[in-house]
Write a protein that binds this DNA or RNA. Sequence first.
RNA 1: GGAGACGUGCCCGAGUGGCCCAAGGGAGCAGUUUGCAAAACUGUAAAGCCGGCGGUUCAAAUCCGCCCGUCUCCU
Length: 315
Amino acid sequence: MKVVIISGPTATGKTDLSLQLASDFGGEIVNFDSLLLYKEITIGTAKPTIEERGKIPHHMIDISSISRPLNAADYAKLALPIIDQLLKEKKIVYLVGGSGFYLQAILRGMYDSPTTPKDILEKSDTLYRQEGITPFREILKKEDFLSFTRYHENDHYRIRRAVEHFWTTGTPLSLTRAKKDLENDQSNQMSIHGWDIHHVHLDVPKEEHFEIIKHRTKKMLTNGLIQEVESLLQSGFTGLEKPLQSIGYKEVLDLHFGLIKNLEDCQERIVISTRQLAKSQRTWFNRISGKVTYHPLLDTAKIAEDVSHFIQLKL
RNA sequence: GGAGACGUGCCCGAGUGGCCCAAGGGAGCAGUUUGCAAAACUGUAAAGCCGGCGGUUCAAAUCCGCCCGUCUCCU
């Protein structure tokens, strides 16, 4: 039941480290990066190469199409059985990625709330389009006051979701939430599954990281990110697919459609978006306890030592 | 050489005599986060005075003059 989590902001060397550890200590890799799930997008997501994936088995990569986006619940539903199976086979599982919310979905589980059915979603869309967020807030005020106070009035995603939950289940989302939170608090573990976990968190000083990001962005553009987008457009995708609204892709699409003037601006925009992503990833992982933070280049020996210790100690 | 336009914070940009100790956006900084999460949302510092100098006026980023700079057009 040994799980090694490898997390960190984008472009901190998670892939390299995971390959290294898996080849040194054995085990298989389970991705928790939200965009590696899509088979059509490769260069902009810095996906491990086919060759790398040939050496070490990887899971939860290229499992869906950008025309069929998955959410965190879908992800967890697919990933958990795979992890369980690997652990059953006494393999070390490396959970590798940067999407904190997706990791949380695995470690803590999702609330007991259904995905909003299509008819209710349509009802919600229509109401929102016609009357904005106000009627939703009024519903919450009346039916789910805790959620009403919890969300900022502009947070239409979460307000609508709370209302949709109420419409489909007839119970307030805050109630479901409270139950689940209580369970998690009581378990007081790094995960609800009883796994033995070592959490390797990678990070790099900001200035150094900015240089890495700049360099990597340049490389993506020279390595064919633009051609990748062009060929997606040629094969019938519109560019409106949710995963194509992600960093690197949205900027190249803007370049393609003339919203960005030239390649330099495009590159600059990608760098800025990437830095902003890194910042919010730091903020997310900051509050996660139980992790050990390492520098991916300076602490390699320490990481290997800690992981081997972790693996052997409890064999 | 001639005609015109413009010059406002790191960037874009509103303001055309008092309500400007200068709107808004972006970038920056900080944060939230349970079925869109590389998403969505929140909070926040920053112009010693609006290219420079001088003038008009009770009052100028806003009017006038000169200078500097940028751009467009003409010969």
